[in-house]
């Protein structure tokens, strides 16, 4: 696993600080970029010449455009179809998880309260997705065949 970029979409100051601290400790070589609102995601990803992140870590409950809407909008962009979208939320509502998967999320991760656990969950998430080869070309047809 080498140097790569993680885009974090998170409105909470506390969670931004915690995520930066956790990734900084577990993956010092990973670059982290924060967006504070769902509406900033698409302009950031579709800007000409923009560096695409290895994965997007997405909060679900944000004022304005929530995480679910962000997933739908990103998945509607053919050029971003291969982008890994990881929902990182404190919501335990299974219906929300189902809606996220239906919209095209790759992963739905529970955000623990305990910081040691929080750090472990983020470390394992980045370990897993950091090893998975990034999909440069959008997969044709059935996305379920992509692993």
């Amino acid at each position: 696993m080498s140097d790569y970029l993680v885009l974090v979409v998170e409105d909470s100051d506390e969670d931004v600080e915690a995520i930066a601290r956790a990734i900084g400790r577990s993956h010092p070589q990973v670059r982290v970029e924060f967006l504070r609102a769902g509406t900033e995601v698409l302009p950031r990803l579709t800007a000409p010449g923009a560096e695409l992140p290895r994965l997007v870590l997405l909060d679900l409950n944000m004022p304005g455009e929530g995480g679910l809407e962000v997933i739908r909008r990103v998945r509607a962009e053919p050029a971003l179809a291969g982008l890994t979208l990881v929902v990182f939320t404190s919501s335990e509502d299974q219906a929300e998880a189902d809606a996220c998967f239906a919209a095209g999320a790759d992963s739905y991760i529970y955000k623990p309260i305990n910081f040691a656990l929080f750090r472990t969950v983020l470390r394992q998430t980045l370990d897993y997705w950091g090893k998975v080869a990034p999909t440069v070309v959008p997969p044709p047809g059935d996305s379920a065949t992509r692993t």
Binding site: S107, A144, T145
Partner: peptide, 12 residues
């Protein structure tokens, strides 16, 4: 699974 697409494919 941390990778739900992989899980779907595995169970299929």
């Amino acid at each position: 699974h941390v990778d739900m697409r992989k899980l779907d494919a595995m169970l299929a």
